[in-house]
């Protein structure tokens, strides 16, 4: 299958501090690929660069044949990005927010309608969509945000800490939504500091620590290679060496 995302020698420095140091990975179409690692490892920085809102210090990012650094505007048509702990405009209703975003994603009225309908279906909030976002719980807000990110069925969905801070039920629902979208052909790049949870979501992972990718592979491969019962143990073993 062809690669939707190819990241090569990607670097990012904030002033003198190197947050991301020459990382490489690629994600195939329909795959759910996870960047996992502890806090401060450089996951968000990497995702922001892929999402075209941070400029890499070095390296290249190709999304579906488009160079993100050279043609960010073209790349933005292919992606959607869900920031870590994204907030929303509190004075809008859930529906109002989704409608506003559909208008910004869509080029035609027909698309706008289609996107809105899909978003309403994805978030599954029903009548609560009439309430102001300011009155939503964390789980509800995250579902609206996820619906916003997935409504246009982007070539690549970039989801930063999609489920962090949510209870078991909400996290499970969100994972199911992401999985069903991937089944229909969407490519997903997620990040998580929760290495246990990610086993339920992703096909392949890259473990990132202090700005470097220290291991890549499918979950089964990694467990076998390091003789560990879960990814957390894999990470701890990798760190010791």
């Amino acid at each position: 299958m062809k690669n939707i995302l190819e990241v090569k020698n990607l670097c990012k420095s904030y002033g003198k501090f190197d947050a991301v140091k020459r990382i490489n990975f690629s994600v195939a179409q329909g795959e759910i690929f996870a960047l996992i690692g502890p806090n401060g490892a450089g996951k968000s920085t990497t995702l922001k660069m892929v999402a075209s809102i941070l400029q890499p210090t070095d390296g290249s990012i190709i999304i579906d044949g488009v160079d993100v650094v050279r043609e960010p505007e073209a790349a933005r048509h292919k992606i959607s990005y869900l920031p870590e702990e994204a907030g929303a405009y509190k004075n809008l209703t859930g529906r109002g927010y989704l409608q506003f975003m559909a208008g910004l994603y869509a080029e035609t009225k027909a698309d706008e309608k289609k996107y809105l309908e899909r978003a309403i279906e994805i978030c599954g909030l029903g009548r609560r969509l009439k309430d102001k976002l300011g009155a939503y719980s964390k789980g509800m807000t995250r579902k609206v945000m996820l619906a916003r990110a997935l409504m246009k069925e982007p070539k690549l969905a970039i989801l930063d800490e999609a489920t962090s801070g949510l209870d078991v039920i909400n996290a499970l629902e969100i994972r199911d939504i992401i999985k069903s979208c991937a089944k229909s052909g969407m490519t997903v790049l997620v990040s998580s500091h929760n290495m246990l949870e990610i086993e339920y979501l992703s096909d392949r992972v890259a473990i990132i620590d202090q700005g470097k990718i220290i291991e890549t592979g499918s979950i089964a491969e990694l467990k076998k290679r390091h003789q560990a019962e879960n990814l957390e143990v894999v990470f701890l073993k990798l760190r010791k060496t």
Partner: peptide, 15 residues
């Protein structure tokens, strides 16, 4: 910036 709505806005296909 605080609510991270800016990050979303900047990633949209809007100039």
């Amino acid at each position: 910036k605080e609510n991270k709505t800016l990050e979303t806005l900047l990633s949209l296909p809007v100039s």
